[in-house]
Nucleic acid binder design. Sequence first.
RNA 1: GCCGGGAUGGGGUAGCUUGGUUAUCCUAGGGGACUGUGGAUCCCUUGACUCGGGUUCAAAUCUCGGUCCCGGCCCCA
Length: 414
Amino acid sequence: MIQCPRGTRDFLPDEMERRRYYESILRKTAVTFGFREISTPIFEETELFTTRSGPNILNEIYAFKDKGDRDIALRPELTAPVMRMFVNSMSNEPRPLKLFYYGQCFRYERPQSGRYREFFQFGAELIGNANAETDAEAIALAASMIRALGLKEYKIRIGHIGVLRDLLNNAGIAKDRMPEILQKLDKKLYDEARPLLIDMNVDDDVIDNIFKITETVGGKEVLDLISDEAAAYLKELIDILAVMDVNDVEIDLGVVRGLDYYTGIVFEAEAPSLGAEKQICGGGSYSLSELFGGEKVFSTGFAIGFDRILLALEKEGGKFENKGVDVYVVPVSDDVRPDAAKIVSMLRSNEIIADIDIMRRKMAKAMKQASEVKAKYAVIVGKNELNENSVTVRDMSTGDQKMVKISDLVRSLK
RNA sequence: GCCGGGAUGGGGUAGCUUGGUUAUCCUAGGGGACUGUGGAUCCCUUGACUCGGGUUCAAAUCUCGGUCCCGGCCCCA
């Protein structure tokens, strides 16, 4: 038997209906914020991703030569494609651009809970300016989406890449050595970071201060301990978010990103119920367009791990009820099937979701099927009714039945 | 890539330690009984040992390897 490739999934109708429902909530929320949906190719030139993330990602993406000897990669994320699209086709559009996307991404990684090789991201990019309003808009959208989905247990943490960068800069650390330090700090591996810093001639008390800053977590009052531009910026951001009724965020200066193009705030959301892969959203402000040949433009964006957030919702016990059809048409005998077909067709053209027995089942089995497909009503078509230009309408939840003229049927069902 | 645990009809399972008749039970699918009314009952029926090699008279069971799944590590743009 042929199975799904490692790390991929089939989605059956019940699951697909559930996914579409939650997708629609995310889309609706983004549209409410004035964002507009875009779509980019599933595969891109490999260079797009190595330009953004460095040559090492080749080990973790699906990259190959196509028949024209082009280097192609399945997209592992969507920020780079969106910025490519911006540079190619949207650089003269009025700013800000507020774009969102939903689609699958591919990474060649070992699958585990909440991590697949084909997974779905819902994200947004706000292109135009580097200011607190822009960042607030992005974070508020992310928070609103998480809330709108109905997730109860989650945590949003906001940091600023500038705080640590300035500290490291002032400590005399060269720019090209920063990533390795930041990587250790991100994971709070102080025992490994200290020798590196000592090796770079950083004083002990400066090191202690750097470590202390990465431990800074809490409300905006924790920023009082720091007096620099980044801290002031974060205060401004938190104030705007509070006005927008986004209060469930905390400052965490230990949220760090190693890559150069991050320019300011960074934020993450996690669902504690998920275990090892608990991050459900990640984002920040960045400057990428110049890497793809465009002018330098500041952006803020984020991506939500759709599969993970659905997993978290499931763990919280959120039940999703699949919808059934409105009407199931039941022919009583074979000789009335043409009449039944005519009736189901009439219902459908009036936008009533209607199904009909096509298995040539006997009436009792057809009734069973009607409850199987969760029909609200069974429309029973038989000789007795047809003689009076009528059908019997049965309410499947109560069992109440009544005769209805065919000419009144649509109205009686609406 | 590393460590560990798994895989038995569509779904859920028993059997595996100690190899031995026709692989257990529940559920689901198709048909029927109840000759024009669903969720019930009964009958018939469909359908599985993850794949490949090895040991053996004999393998679901022991053994080696592959594949996939699960938990964790690495990574997480």
